[in-house]
Amino acid sequence: MIIGNGQEILIAGETCVADPSGALWHGGTRSIIVSDLHLEKGSSFARRGMLLPPYDTVATLMHLRRVLDHYNPQRVIALGDSFHDAQAAERLADAERKKLVDMQQDRIWVWISGNHDPAPPQGLAGETMDEIRIGALILRHEPQSGEAHGEVAGHLHPVARVVTKRGSLRRRCFVSDGSRCILPAFGAYAGGLNLRDEAFAPLFRARAPHAHVLGRDRIYSVALEQCYAD
């Protein structure tokens, strides 16, 4: 995946870049926004008897490391559900904890609280908040129902199923109508919800959104009509 070859999108007048890594870059404040890391999802399943490969945290943090190396942001905003459950931060292996601490050096780090991680992560730096404003943008984990100009949220893990004569493809995507934007999940084990699901309907009543689909080396912007239900 080529990081940095993003697509410029306007959200409530603010210029952002949707990166093929799944991160959103706000150049004006040198902020990078990533949503739904779901760290330690693997070990969360393991507790319940499904011994998934314990490499999801490593994979997600490596991915994040590459994004930070490219953009060198002043501020990192993790848009909620950064940890899969309340004990996930404690289960972090020492090596992973160290990677996280290294990435936090010399920059502002904001944990937006999510439904999976309502409390601040134990033993980690960074400020925990419910919402944060950046210019005209309001960043929170779960999108509010109805009109919310400037809202940037996660929670829904949008994926688009694109169908053309060549075939069909299901990929993570940003969803935006220019007024608000839903970020794709960033975590290695985070599943996806089709943007045709009814959960998205109340968010984009006024205008049909576009899906900015994560390709291998760039973003592909696709009209809603081109996206199908699963």
Partner: peptide, 22 residues
């Protein structure tokens, strides 16, 4: 029959091209 060998991203490229056209 399905045609193979085209990179999957071409599906996205095609869909995106339609948007640009529009």
């Amino acid at each position: 029959e399905p045609v193979y060998g085209q990179a999957q991203d071409e599906i996205l490229a095609e869909a995106a091209a339609m948007l640009v056209e529009e």
